[in-house]
Amino acid sequence: MPEPKVVLFLAAFLFCCGVYGVLSRRHLIMLLMSLELMLNAINIMLVTFSRHWAGKNHDMLGSHAGQFFTLMVMAVAAAEVGIGLAIIVALYRRKHTADADAATDLKN
């Protein structure tokens, strides 16, 4: 078995990669992809804590709660990507670009 702290470090690193992607890219699809990477890091963290709890407390319902939350995060991420990509398609029809800096209609 891997050590919990190593897995948590992997999750933190993936999360920071996602943060870097969100901060540095202006293409909206790249932004959504980096967001997905951040959610994936959270999933890894949840599963790690779930496994850690299962090793301490032999309580089946409580130790699977982390995995259940991972499934919920996946469902919410899928819904979010569906809406986000629809918004990108609508923005592309209007502005002919998927650049985040082009969406300035509400400015001023």
């Binding site: 994936n40 599963v47 496994r51 299962a54 499934l71």
Partner: peptide, 13 residues
């Protein structure tokens, strides 16, 4: 990440 989940005893995830 799926491999990480597998090594953490979460095959369904």
């Amino acid at each position: 990440s799926a491999g990480v989940f597998l090594s953490l005893d979460a095959p369904f995830i």
